[in-house]
Amino acid sequence: GPGLTDLFKTEKAAVKKMAKAIMADPSKADDVYQKWADKGYTLTQLSDFLKSKTRGKYDRVYNGYMTYR
């Protein structure tokens, strides 16, 4: 089956995709945050998933999740 690194890459891609969806349409934020909360994502995990070469690119999404939880 898929190894943990593959799983991480898949999760990371999914999280980034959802983060971009929030940035494009902030009204989606609560739905996405709820999904992440259901998956039990911690802020540390989210921070790892949303690492970007562009500093602060996903800060709004991260901060939103922090206040959501």
Rank of each mutant, 00 (worst) to 15 (best):
G1I: 10
P2R: 09
P2Y: 02
P2K: 11
P2I: 11
P2G: 13
P2L: 09
P2Q: 13
P2T: 12
P2W: 02
P2C: 15
G3E: 15
G3Y: 04
G3K: 12
G3A: 15
G3S: 13
L4S: 12
L4Q: 13
L4K: 12
L4F: 12
L4Y: 08
T5V: 11
T5L: 12
T5M: 07
D6C: 14
D6L: 05
D6M: 05
L7V: 08
L7W: 15
L7H: 15
L7D: 15
L7G: 12
L7K: 14
F8W: 14
F8K: 12
F8L: 11
F8P: 07
F8Y: 15
F8Q: 09
F8R: 12
F8C: 13
K9C: 13
K9L: 07
K9V: 07
K9N: 11
K9I: 05
T10G: 10
T10E: 12
T10F: 08
T10I: 14
T10P: 08
T10H: 12
E11P: 03
E11T: 07
E11N: 05
K12F: 03
K12H: 05
K12S: 14
K12T: 08
A13L: 08
A13I: 09
A13T: 08
A13S: 08
A14I: 12
A14C: 15
A14D: 07
A14W: 14
V15C: 05
V15F: 03
V15D: 00
K16R: 15
K16G: 03
K16N: 04
K16W: 04
K16L: 12
K16H: 05
K17P: 01
K17N: 08
K17E: 09
K17V: 08
K17W: 07
M18N: 05
M18W: 07
A19D: 00
A19H: 00
A19V: 04
A19C: 03
A19M: 03
K20Q: 11
K20M: 09
K20T: 06
A21Q: 11
A21Y: 08
A21M: 13
A21W: 08
A21E: 14
I22D: 00
I22S: 02
M23G: 02
M23N: 04
M23H: 03
M23V: 06
M23D: 03
M23F: 04
M23L: 14
A24K: 11
A24Q: 12
A24F: 09
A24H: 08
A24Y: 08
A24W: 05
A24N: 14
D25H: 05
D25T: 04
P26Q: 06
P26S: 07
P26L: 07
P26R: 04
P26D: 07
P26E: 09
P26A: 06
P26T: 05
P26I: 06
P26K: 05
P26C: 09
S27T: 14
S27K: 10
S27Q: 07
S27P: 03
K28T: 10
K28D: 03
K28M: 13
K28A: 09
A29E: 06
A29D: 02
D30R: 10
D30H: 15
D30F: 12
D30M: 11
D31W: 11
D31L: 10
D31Q: 11
D31E: 13
D31I: 10
D31P: 05
V32S: 03
V32M: 07
V32I: 14
V32L: 04
V32A: 06
V32W: 02
Y33T: 00
Y33E: 00
Q34A: 12
Q34P: 04
Q34C: 08
Q34V: 05
Q34S: 12
Q34F: 06
K35A: 12
K35S: 12
K35V: 12
K35I: 15
W36E: 00
W36F: 03
W36V: 00
W36S: 00
A37G: 04
A37Y: 14
A37D: 07
A37E: 07
A37C: 14
A37H: 14
A37F: 14
A37Q: 08
A37P: 00
D38P: 00
K39A: 13
K39E: 07
K39Q: 09
G40D: 04
G40E: 05
Y41S: 01
Y41D: 01
Y41K: 01
T42H: 03
T42S: 11
T42E: 04
T42N: 05
T42R: 02
T42G: 04
L43D: 05
L43S: 07
L43P: 12
L43A: 08
L43R: 04
L43M: 10
L43V: 08
T44E: 13
T44Q: 14
T44M: 14
Q45R: 07
Q45L: 07
Q45T: 06
Q45D: 08
L46V: 08
L46T: 02
L46H: 00
S47K: 14
S47I: 09
S47E: 10
S47A: 14
S47M: 11
D48V: 15
D48W: 15
F49L: 09
F49E: 01
F49H: 02
F49Q: 01
F49G: 01
F49T: 02
L50M: 03
L50E: 01
L50G: 01
L50C: 01
L50V: 02
L50A: 01
L50D: 00
K51S: 13
K51L: 08
K51F: 08
K51H: 08
K51A: 08
K51Q: 11
K51G: 14
S52N: 06
S52W: 06
S52I: 09
S52K: 04
S52H: 09
S52M: 05
S52D: 11
K53F: 07
K53Q: 11
K53R: 13
T54Y: 08
R55Y: 10
R55V: 14
R55P: 15
R55E: 14
G56Y: 06
G56T: 07
G56R: 06
G56H: 09
K57I: 07
K57T: 06
K57C: 04
K57V: 07
K57G: 04
K57E: 10
Y58M: 04
Y58I: 02
Y58R: 01
Y58K: 01
D59S: 08
D59C: 10
D59G: 05
D59L: 10
D59E: 11
D59Q: 09
D59T: 08
D59I: 07
R60P: 12
R60Y: 14
R60K: 13
R60C: 14
R60L: 10
R60S: 15
V61I: 12
V61R: 00
V61Q: 02
V61C: 02
V61Y: 02
Y62S: 03
Y62D: 01
Y62K: 12
Y62E: 07
Y62A: 04
Y62M: 15
N63P: 02
N63G: 06
N63M: 13
N63K: 13
N63T: 10
N63C: 15
N63A: 12
N63Y: 13
G64K: 02
G64D: 07
G64V: 02
G64R: 02
G64C: 04
G64H: 03
G64S: 03
Y65T: 00
Y65K: 00
Y65G: 01
Y65N: 00
M66E: 14
M66I: 14
M66F: 07
M66Q: 14
T67N: 14
T67I: 15
T67G: 08
T67Q: 15
T67A: 14
T67M: 15
T67W: 14
Y68Q: 02
Y68A: 03
Y68S: 03
Y68E: 01
Y68F: 14
R69P: 03
R69T: 13
R69L: 15
